[in-house]
Design a protein around this nucleic acid. Structure first.
Lengths: 196, 196
DNA sequence: ACCTGAACACCGTTCAAGT
DNA sequence: ACCTGAACACCGTTCAAGT
């Protein structure tokens, strides 16, 4: 048996993955660097080599969250290449599914920043917005919107879906209500956004 | 001089008001019961008489936040009794102004609940939704919507405005962008929601 | 380059005791 | 009814030292 640390070269990922579990099961208040270290079998000082402080861990979690959410949305929309309305619906549903599985992570991703958001988080958030933009551009090609409007419409759609997600994670509406709300949102969005 | 505690009968309010300042200036991570107690000039155990734990204080803050936000929105909309579109715009702008002044408080109001939200918070959140409903009902009388749709449309408008606020508090968009987004949102909402 | 372990300051919570 | 103050367990952070 070696006495090299079990997680040598891997501790960062182990901490992040365990943190996601804690976030999912017990929420952000239960997330402690010392507990993560204990569960990973390292000393309480070890995370310091990978995250300068608790905020840096939270940033890394938010970054991973944005990347995963963007991937889920892109994947969902890509299953409806022929029908833009259905693609929007699939994307929104994927967003809501993420919110229901990982509400505390979504909170973290959209949490108030005291200063500027970190570069990594900002980039990951832009990846999500880029995914939404790609989906909307497919709608332009299908004749659903004017090309000039796509930037503003993408922002509006993103805000609307995030708002619905916030109502779900804060338990203000139930899952069935959120599904009806997504239907309404997309129907009204397409009607209101149509050129002319 | 009496040695009755300075805050006798008043400590609860003093703690809440100081907590709102801390939340505004330094964010939720800086909010500590012990610090609040020190600043109020009482022992660290004193808050226990008014809030069973830190979560109860946060609930009380969220409750007050919902009440204040609902009042601001009602007031803003009431200044445009003749023009429903302008009333919606005023309400949304009041929401965004709240989000910019008290981003951490808004986060708290829409934070993920692990269990069920407390009765008091739920009631206060419903007051906000009730205010939005009243504004929308005025739109029904003005002929902007079918009465049958007003419940779903109110939910959609609420979600959209909250989503725009989330983009602001998370620093994803700037204040000018949020103003343009509110314009787009309300124009598109009225177009999409119009009866027929 | 990464991890250990002592040290420090701070925190939430509990609770017997006071008024 | 409300507040005090000791006690407990836990936490984030720092840092000299090890490998």
């Amino acid at each position: 048996m070696s006495h090299r640390p079990f997680h040598h070269g891997n501790l960062r990922t182990v901490l992040l993955e365990q943190a996601e579990v804690v976030l999912r099961e017990r929420g952000i208040d239960a997330l402690s660097l010392r507990e993560l270290a204990r569960e990973a079998g390292v000393s309480h000082g070890a995370p310091r080599s990978h995250f300068i402080d608790r905020g840096a861990l939270l940033d890394a979690l938010a970054e991973r969250g944005f990347i995963r959410l963007a991937d889920r949305i892109r994947e969902a929309a890509s299953r409806e290449p022929e029908d833009h309305a259905r693609a929007l619906h699939a994307a929104a549903s994927a967003y809501l599914a993420f919110a229901e599985r990982d509400p505390a992570l979504l909170d973290l991703m959209f949490a108030t920043k005291v200063g500027e958001p970190s570069e990594a988080v900002r980039g990951a958030a832009e990846r999500l917005f880029g995914t939404m933009t790609d989906i909307m551009n497919a709608g332009v090609e299908a004749g659903a919107y004017d090309a000039d409007d796509v930037g503003r419409l993408t922002l509006l759609l993103s805000a609307t879906v995030q708002g619905i997600a916030a109502l779900v994670t804060s338990r203000r509406i139930t899952t069935p209500q959120s599904e009806a709300l997504v239907d309404d949102a997309i129907r009204l969005f397409l009607k209101g956004a149509s050129a002319g």
